[in-house]
């Protein structure tokens, strides 16, 4: 496949037939997905359905075995492509925060602009502090990650990604490692991002949040998008038997 594949202009990301296997285990088995600019897309599904791998593939942290990932119409799944220029345009937030424990919170946020964009140290720290203040963490700017609560750490991780001015944000179950009372503060940040028009693709177990915030919900099952549609349609009137069963399970567990 070449980079010049015809595509709809307002699509930010488009996946076509994305296939990924770890040894003999197929994790993504032909994913087709369209993410329009400014859209928020929720990926739901059981553990092991491929949500995280899908996000990691879009960020090129995992090489795709087959298929096409178009980012602004350019195929970034091409084997051998230098991933660094792509990744700096795509932000990613991880389930376990992955903050750098040897740096202060401000330095965590400033390191990307400093190293990758060549911003001066003082400017990067100043802008980092602004970003932290925006997310309500201005007072903890000099703290180290281990001195913060999980919710604060995750907000720092979001600030670290935003500091790179990404065009798209990938959120990989960012509230799964948090105590229930800390989930809200992180989700508030994501609501703010949606209001700012950020394009986001996120994997989640927070069904209520997925329903509230997303423009489209995709239900993954065994490496395929089994069903996709508006939140109301997926949560209110799921067509597929598997989707119904999955949603019933999470409802019974009190997560909806």
């Amino acid at each position: 496949m070449t980079a010049e594949v015809p595509t709809t202009p307002d699509l930010k990301i488009e996946l076509r037939g994305v296939y990924k296997a770890f040894d003999a285990t197929t994790v993504l088995n032909g994913i087709d997905l369209e993410v329009a600019k400014g859209n928020v897309i929720a990926l739901i599904g059981a553990s092991g359905s491929g949500k995280s791998t899908l996000l990691r593939c879009v960020n090129l942290l995992e090489p795709v075995d087959d298929g096409v990932i178009l980012f602004d119409g350019v195929d970034i799944a091409e084997p051998g492509l230098n991933p660094d220029p792509i990744r700096r345009r795509i932000g990613m937030v991880f389930q376990s925060f992955n903050l750098f424990p040897h740096m202060s919170v401000t330095d965590n946020v400033a390191i990307g602009p400093r190293k990758v964009l060549g911003v001066s140290k003082s400017q990067a720290r100043r802008e980092g502090l602004e970003m932290l203040t925006r997310l309500g963490l201005g007072e903890r700017a000099d703290a180290y990650p281990d001195q913060l609560s999980g919710g604060q750490q995750q907000r720092v991780a979001i600030a670290r990604s935003l500091a790179m001015n990404p065009e798209v944000m990938l959120l990989d179950e960012i509230t799964s490692a948090l105590d229930p009372e800390l989930v809200g503060e992180v989700l508030d940040v994501i609501r703010g991002l949606k209001n700012d028009g950020m394009t986001m693709l996120f994997a989640t177990h927070e069904m209520a949040f997925a329903r509230e915030i997303s423009d489209k919900v995709c239900f993954l099952h065994k490496g395929r998008i089994l069903e996709e549609g508006s939140p109301d349609q997926i949560f209110g009137d799921p067509q597929e038997e598997r989707t119904q069963a999955f949603l019933k399970r999470v409802t019974d567990a009190g997560r909806l």
Partner: peptide, 15 residues
């Protein structure tokens, strides 16, 4: 995961 976080910011392997 530390490498993943750094690489996701666009940092090179050396950085």
């Amino acid at each position: 995961s530390q490498r993943a976080a750094a690489r996701s910011l666009g940092m090179t392997g050396q950085q």
